[in-house]
Design a protein around this nucleic acid. Structure first.
Lengths: 230, 230
DNA sequence: CGGTGTGAAGCCTTTCACAGCA
DNA sequence: TGCTGTGAAAGGCTTCACACCG
């Protein structure tokens, strides 16, 4: 591995997690601007469109390198290219869905994946009744075929769409098959070894968070409220 | 408003957002422990089960008040009650889904909502072909009936499950109907007035974040970017 | 000029470490 | 003794403000 390449890898590790989570947002914003024929943008414009402070935009982009021009702004296409590269979106990335229930169905039918360069290469389930069925143009196969689905696709992403009770074994199966980036919709915390990234989306949990903020609008609670509250 | 009162109000709001977002996680953890018949827990145990540092658990819980017993731990049931109250989960909360497509279907069929005290009171769509259909035991009604659905249920939560193009108007319709806590699955940033809380779950965006981390496992790629995948 | 790139300040969150109490 | 509750330290993120440069 050459000096140059190593340094870039190391640099990449220093991109703060929060920044990484905002990059796709900027990317979407830039693509929308590009579609409007806009070729140059300022951090101010990007920030406005993405709902983010301009200084934060500049700081975030500076982690990727100095791609702007002082006094002018950023070249939209150039920035799109650099960000796509940084996010590893230069190629189609394979996605495997574990769990062919309601959510698995909805996900494999979701058109947004294809549109953004993710290819659903398979959906697996343990239920023999579901195996063989077709969902969103993909055939449901047995859990055992999971390793085969991703064998030829390093850097694949797994999606867990099982009930909570099956989530840990779904994650384990994905990791065993060589998948180390996982999006889980199952409630509960999955245990994984180092080097595996799991992002979790728990729908009921999101609603509970919203409930906290919705509470402001409840009529007086039947239970006694702490007097200092609101 | 006097200084003192303002200070108290500010203090109350000062349950940090990150803490609020962890409370439901603790709650789930505690409910699971309660189901196992465990009546007392230490911050260490909760942390272990929730995948969180014990000190953080104590700090977070301390924002709700001092409900623990030194040398002993926390009474599980008492903590569950206090947290439920804090999260406004003392009653069933109404949920309205906007958009009866794939995702809307999956959501209204999702059993996890009921199980955690959220009642899907309606699902609306602008497509006349979809109106009248039944999904998950709920009839799809016209967008216009949205205000009626939540009129009797202050503190309701709205879920946006529309395509991106309809997201802003869906949000506007929800806000106009009096909903001020919204979970959106649509890509893009929705504009809302102050006092409205929007949480966003963008599936493709989640995958792009994972793609960044998956890139470590790609074979060496400094290859030129193919713009067509975007 | 105008807008980037970036040290430095400020703020928020996490973690430490221990006093205090059952 | 054991574990909570919490000041204080450490770390990380955001925001400011301005040097710098096209």
């Amino acid at each position: 591995m050459g000096e140059e390449q190593r340094r870039r890898l190391d640099d990449r590790q220093h991109v703060p997690e929060v920044t990484v989570s905002r990059l796709p947002l900027y990317l979407q914003t830039l693509l929308a601007l590009a579609a409007q024929g806009i070729r140059t943008v300022s951090s101010e414009q990007v920030g406005q469109a993405a709902g983010v402070n301009a200084a934060k935009v500049r700081k975030d982009l500076s982690y990727l390198g100095s791609y702007g021009t002082r006094g002018v702004g950023y070249d939209v296409q150039h920035l799109v290219d650099e960000m796509s590269r940084e996010l590893g979106l230069g190629r189609d990335r394979a996605v495997v869905i574990v769990g062919a229930g309601n959510l698995g169905h909805a996900l494999s039918n979701y058109r947004g994946f294809d549109a953004r360069g993710f290819e659903v290469v398979g959906i697996v389930d343990i239920d023999p009744d579901k195996v063989g069925g077709e969902v969103g143009g993909v055939t449901v196969s047995d859990l055992a075929s999971l390793p085969g689905l991703v064998a030829q696709r390093p850097g694949s992403i797994g999606i867990v769409a099982t009930p909570a009770s099956a989530a840990q074994s779904a994650v384990d199966a994905l990791v065993a098959a060589g998948v180390s980036s996982i999006l889980s919709f199952a409630p509960g915390t999955a245990m994984v070894s180092d080097g595996v990234t799991v992002r979790q989306v728990d729908l009921a949990l999101e609603l509970q968070i919203l409930s906290f903020y919705a509470r402001r609008f409840d009529e007086t609670d039947d239970r006694a409220l702490d007097p200092t509250v609101l």
